[in-house]
Design a protein around this nucleic acid. Structure first.
Lengths: 184, 184
DNA sequence: CATCGGGTGTCCGATTACGGACGGTAGATG
DNA sequence: CATCTACCGTCCGTAATCGGACACCCGATG
């Protein structure tokens, strides 16, 4: 499985950016860096990143992670399908939980173990790709087929119940079962 | 907004169950308890709970949370729409992150603050209800309307692009826009 | 046993949906 | 200016879909 992706590392500490490149460049060809969250929306809108590594603090005295949380929201508003991994040296259980509840896909404490970072990024890239594929899979027939499969599963194979929940008559459902190759 | 829900507290410590009832019974009429995860699937299959509070350790020497993680998976396999809040006295950032990545909606450290527990449960009940409502909203027209709205948003109002991504001809899309009241 | 309720599979006259084609607009380009 | 490209809104001959109705089956019940 090819997990090479386009990554963005957002951190004002150049050593962190360097360490991340070192850990990830063997496997990922494109690793952009951004040291200031002020233009994060522009950057994210301009490139379909596969994963974003986002630090949580961007001012010397800040440790509460609120800047990273804010940036997370802005990133996801700009590109709802991208996976964001938050990074911090000052993590607590509460901050970690809050980050994930707000949509981060993972949370990495600094200093990280390289194999852990690699695994997290690989999973994030995979996640993003699945999300993009699903979002691109919008044709009416695919959605209809999936809905019918879901309704059948929920109705435990009862065709009458499934037809009702789908808002279809039974003959209409039979036609679709035949059309989509779902007949037993 | 009525947030009274059917709750299940899964913990082998009767003091925890008692404390949870005390904190939550003013607002929630049904609070079941289960002290052993062995029959968790049966319990969850028998009742449409709105939220489940799940301890992470069920044996005296166990602190790693693996029993709770296992139970979480089993609960979600049985009822994919229910919100599960994990609880433990031995939480770490890694355990918390792993819990949320596996599908828990929140993570509470013991001993908890009652207002925090209440808020978490209220959000979980709301979440579960939204999930159930969405799962029950399976009629073909609703799904089709939503798909069209999503495609229009992605295509930034470009009808030709939206029609193509939906697998429809432009006249077919126009008919649906008219049918669903989506014409500008 | 007969009856009821719930479900299955199919048919056919009526209705609706389909998409290629037409005519038009707007912006970019030489 | 003329041309091209991309998009918009609509039409109409053809094709497909619609759902009430029919016949049947199965399990539960009196």
């Amino acid at each position: 499985m090819d997990m090479s992706g386009a990554l963005l590392v957002v951190d004002d500490d150049v050593d962190v950016v360097r360490a991340a490149r070192l850990a990830l460049s063997l496997r990922h060809e494109k690793i952009d860096a951004l040291n200031d969250i002020g233009t994060i929306e522009l950057q994210v809108a301009a490139t379909n990143y596969d994963a974003i590594l986002l630090d949580m603090n961007f001012a010397a005295q800040r440790r509460d992670g609120s800047q990273g949380m804010d940036a997370l929201s802005r990133i996801l508003a700009t590109d709802p399908d991208v996976s964001v991994i938050l990074m911090t040296a000052f993590g607590s259980v509460n901050v970690a939980v809050e980050a994930l509840k707000r949509g981060a896909v993972d949370f990495i404490l600094k200093p990280w173990a390289n194999d852990k970072l690699e695994a997290s990024v690989a999973a994030a890239v995979d996640s993003t790709r699945r999300r993009r594929a699903a979002a691109g899979n919008l044709d009416i027939e695919t959605l209809e087929k999936k809905a019918i499969e879901a309704a059948l599963a929920r109705a435990k194979g009862n065709l009458s119940v499934a037809a009702t929940s789908l808002g279809l008559s039974r003959p209409a459902l039979y036609r679709r079962l035949s059309k989509y190759g779902l007949l037993p």
